[in-house]
């Protein structure tokens, strides 16, 4: 604990916040480390090769072309042709990406929640599940995430190792709880390890930790 406090004080010194260091030794160390940080910042940055830049700008061009197709369809086709436009989209995009790409075109959180919820009762492929797992990992909106978890509850058999490993990345308590509810009723081999690591995380809500430990004890 004393060392931890000294380390914190050293970093405060390096960051220029304060110089409340308890001892000459700590002060000496802090000065050396501050110089080290300064030296690190002076290391020239490597340049990126032009081919990497070209690749990136090619990506932008492709997306821009696809986007214009989508915008055109949305603006000019009346609602009665919506079914026809979906079929057209299936030719424009890879079939396996149709749910994902339609989702990308949505602009608001309520639209996304509605879209996800309406996938209940539809047949989802493993590609769709991968996409949903990816959304779950990367989206930040808690209500969208909870809706995704609720949807995935009906596809437990298709959830893979990555789903269970991703518990560690989740920081929103209500989403953590929803995920643990899936863990509780699953028999996937990855569950115990994932739960053990998760239950030992710092800053875990007490209810969440209690639930994780409860599931672990009943595994």
């Amino acid at each position: 604990m004393k060392n931890d406090n000294t380390d914190k004080d050293i970093m405060d010194y390096i960051d220029g916040i304060s110089d409340q260091l308890n001892s000459d030794r700590a002060r000496g160390e802090a000065k050396v480390l501050k110089q080290l940080v300064s030296d690190l910042k002076e290391i020239p940055l490597e340049t990126i090769n032009p081919q990497a830049d070209n690749r990136f700008y090619q990506f932008i061009n492709e997306k821009s072309t696809n986007q214009k197709s989508v915008i055109y369809l949305k603006r000019w086709l009346p609602l009665g042709l919506a079914a026809a436009s979906i079929i057209l989209l299936l030719f424009v995009f890879n079939y396996n990406n149709s749910y994902e790409d339609a989702y990308r075109a949505l602009n608001s959180n309520p639209d996304r929640i509605r879209y996800i919820y309406n996938l209940n009762g539809t047949e989802l492929t493993s590609t769709d599940i991968d996409w949903l797992q990816s959304e779950l990992k990367n989206d930040v909106h808690p209500n969208i995430k909870v809706t995704i978890v609720d949807l995935l509850t009906h596809h437990k058999s298709k959830l893979n190792q990555e789903f269970y490993d991703n518990l560690q990345n989740e920081s929103i308590p209500s989403v953590q709880m929803a995920l643990l509810d899936i863990f509780e009723s699953s028999t996937h081999v990855a569950i115990s390890d994932a739960l053990l690591i998760f239950s030992q995380k710092e800053d875990l809500d007490a209810s969440v930790r209690q639930k994780a430990n409860y599931i672990l004890s009943n595994q």
Binding site: N109, P110, I113, R114, Y117, H141, P142, N143, V146, T147, I172, P173, S174, D205, S207
Partner: peptide
């Protein structure tokens, strides 16, 4: 759209849009 960790939620609507979800 409301997400809370520890706390009750009480929402009273004077009107709602028929197409928008409530969560």
């Amino acid at each position: 759209l409301v997400n809370a960790a520890n706390g009750e939620i009480n929402a009273r609507f004077s009107h709602i849009h028929k197409d928008y979800p409530i969560s």
